[in-house]
């Protein structure tokens, strides 16, 4: 079953096209890893897929209400405890069960600590636990392993594997090897937008003024 399909997609950042002619599909139970140098447009692509910015051209299709997005920052409230942070997101997504997520991301012992007093890696783990409580099938992850140690990266890979096994799909932008051997890798290099004089597209006109 196709969870996400992208056809002829072009995305722009700050009015300038960065990627064009992207075509890929993501099936249930599969993971796709996006690679490419800094500035190639991985984050821009993921933000476009998440619906945070409009695409310059092309189509993105996926079942409605199927995507959970995780950005560079985790969206944690520092004065709330780990449990309160997770409970909030689980009630936003109407899932109401945070216990499996706490166990999967090894946060049980930190449950009552304020997010303020967590280390960077622990915050990241909490951010990833948020994905588990969304109950959404398509995960769109932007650099999910930043500040994680090797044990936590393995924990994360395990969580992704569990998600894929239960019929989910994941789109992950990352620079490191996650140990997900089954994941396909998409190098974004060949999709870099050409400059307009070589036949590439112009940025959206009004974007230049925003």
């Amino acid at each position: 079953m196709t969870m996400l399909s992208v056809a002829g997609l072009a995305v722009s950042r700050g009015g300038l096209p960065v990627l064009e002619n992207l075509d890929f599909t993501l099936e249930a139970g599969h993971a796709l890893v996006l690679r490419g140098p800094n500035g190639i447009g991985k984050t821009t692509l993921l933000r476009t897929l998440a619906g945070l910015q409009p695409a310059l051209a092309g189509t993105v299709s996926m079942p409605p209400e199927s995507m959970a997005y995780a950005a560079h920052s985790d969206g944690l409230k520092s004065t709330l405890t780990v449990r309160e942070n997770l409970t909030f997101w689980s009630s936003v997504y109407a899932t109401h069960d945070i216990e499996p997520a706490l166990d999967r991301m090894n946060l049980r012992s930190l449950e009552h600590r304020a997010a303020l007093s967590l280390s960077a890696g622990q915050k990241r783990r909490l951010g990833l636990a948020r994905l588990l409580v969304t109950g959404r099938p398509v995960w769109v992850l932007d650099e999910p392993t930043v500040s994680l140690d090797t044990a936590s990266v393995a924990l994360f890979a395990e969580a992704v594997r569990g998600h894929l096994a239960s019929g989910g799909a994941a789109l992950i932008a990352t620079h490191i090897d996650l140990g997900l051997d089954e994941a396909r890798v998409l190098d974004l290099g060949p999709f870099k937008a050409r400059p307009p004089e070589e036949g590439g597209m112009m940025g959206a006109f009004d974007e230049a003024f925003l």
């Binding site: 995780a70 997101w89 936003v92």
Partner: peptide, 13 residues
């Protein structure tokens, strides 16, 4: 600042 606005925009509300 803490990124939750992005997440709220993509949330089902």
């Amino acid at each position: 600042e803490d990124g939750s606005l992005d997440l709220l925009v993509t949330a089902p509300i």
